[in-house]
Nucleic acid binder design. Sequence first.
DNA 1: CAGCATCATTTGATCGTTCAAAAGGTCTCG
DNA 2: CGAGACCTTTTGAACGATCAAATGATGCTG
Lengths: 336, 336
Amino acid sequence: MTSAATAKPTLVSLARELGVSRQTVSNALNAPHVVAPETRERVLAAITASGYRPSAVGRALRTRRSMNLAYRLYPAVDGINGAVMDRFLHHLVVQAQRHGYRVTLFDTPSYPAEIDALVEQHQAGLIDACVLTDTHSGDPRPRRLTRAGLPVVAFGRPWGDLESPHAWLDIDGGAGCEEAVAHLRAQGHTRIGFLGWPEGSGAGDDRCSGWARGMAGLDVAGLRVHAEDGVRQGVEATAALLTAGATAVVCVSDSLALGAASRFRSAGRSAADVIGFDDTPVAAALGLSSIAQPVEQAAATLITMTLAVLRGERLSAPHSLLPAHLVLRGHQPLQP
Amino acid sequence: MTSAATAKPTLVSLARELGVSRQTVSNALNAPHVVAPETRERVLAAITASGYRPSAVGRALRTRRSMNLAYRLYPAVDGINGAVMDRFLHHLVVQAQRHGYRVTLFDTPSYPAEIDALVEQHQAGLIDACVLTDTHSGDPRPRRLTRAGLPVVAFGRPWGDLESPHAWLDIDGGAGCEEAVAHLRAQGHTRIGFLGWPEGSGAGDDRCSGWARGMAGLDVAGLRVHAEDGVRQGVEATAALLTAGATAVVCVSDSLALGAASRFRSAGRSAADVIGFDDTPVAAALGLSSIAQPVEQAAATLITMTLAVLRGERLSAPHSLLPAHLVLRGHQPLQP
DNA sequence: CAGCATCATTTGATCGTTCAAAAGGTCTCG
DNA sequence: CGAGACCTTTTGAACGATCAAATGATGCTG
């Protein structure tokens, strides 16, 4: 009541009103154990009464920690498959929040600009670390950013450089495909096709290898087909698989699976023998089985890793692979 | 070279090396016109040479502006329709960036907690304004947040309170539906159905009214049907429309349109006479016509509004409605 | 009772920037 | 030649917090 009751309270203004020092007020919040219980109660009461909120900016300036993580939000691509990253991002935000961190977004028009953008944000004190996605073979970002002093955590393997020293986590898509094949074999299928992307993409090849493992002991001649992602492409590629005698197919994406299911139906076969990847809303809506990525767990683990890296700990498990798993759908026969 | 060349440069360290004052360095960047051209060149050269980046935190502390906008990232809902907001968010980030602003995400478990979370972030100096989405009838957020001193800009009308003083922008879905009906009438259709959500949702009712306007002069008995969102629900509701003699249908969402298209095909009709809403990737992949929301333009305008609000300007146009428009697809006949 | 921990609290300095006002310099004009 | 105007540069003072070290108060011990 001494001065303006309307001005936003600060540590100093609160301290003055209470007749204690600013540091005592600060300690009551950040290091309660060093403050005498009686004082602490009094201070905390005043804090809640006044509605005081510590200035995150003042704190960031002094501690040199912004409590912010950077995340590049890519332009929405084709779309059907993009849904996975949206779910991931949401979980990332929630998990970060649980630990007092926030996620701030950015995007850059060109590819190399991403590294610069991140370094700039870091130098400006805007971010403490970054979460990389869409890693690919020969990706320069982890090493370059780490060298620039920016802590890096990646969602996605450093394809071709698995021993890169940065922390990363990925989904074991191969395991999911293997499970899918096992399921189909249990149903009596022996001619199980794989509809993949053109060779060379890490994730695609990984999923393919899982299918191959699952097919151990069976003849796979003609059962492996590659196509660009897309529903239409799925329709066409599936024709080849049917010709090769396939009675079921595991697809590398839901887009392709959508096409495959369509082709299966028009060939008089059941779409229940088509399995997609990513368990997108579309697959759910159309009653298609699909292999799901455990994105929630991925986000949680990734945040845990991030915190460890920020604490400067040497990670006991700097890498982590979470198995994807098959989601079976009764395949409510949506006519088409 | 005087002291450690390794330490991160600051205004003071740069000024010392150049033999000028810190303010001169600052001005060279922020107010070039007040610095003598010769000095300016020298300072700017040193800045680029040293790789100096102004500390956003120091600046934020002094200017009391964080250059951050808050955006609540909702959990991924059903999914098919969610894609619109993802595209919107991306454009929002890009547009904000163009003006030096960043977007930081948050989410809250419960509904009322959102207001508290925003106010807290504002008091902590973390955000300068917030972008609200998912507005609904009786939404308390705009007024409450504005009263708390947090500038608000909303993507979505303040349904039921169109004169609310806050800045908002929305898509005119009704206009899009009207255009869709006009297109179908031009094709010779007179029995054009509307497949909407249960009455009471602002957006849904708005779209329905657009359909009604478009149908002016025609008998609409039995041509208006409502269902919960979902592919399956779309199939069922469309049966009723066909019974009523509908030869075409405008749907309030792509999920419903997916179901409608399926039902149309199994009735031997063309899915080209089904029109969805939101132009989601699924519609594109399946070759379905759909009414698209101009999210990119929406994001750009919204950021413009935000800047004006932050400058404290009285907006000449505090509200804005952008028409949705019809996207026709040749409807490549994906068999199903 | 001096000496020494121990606990609670305060003080001074600092993080890096910008605002606002002062200071120094050059030029013009009466 | 001195007053005023103008342009450039510098200076002092915040912004709001935390770190690190100093100070004061209390109790215990030999």
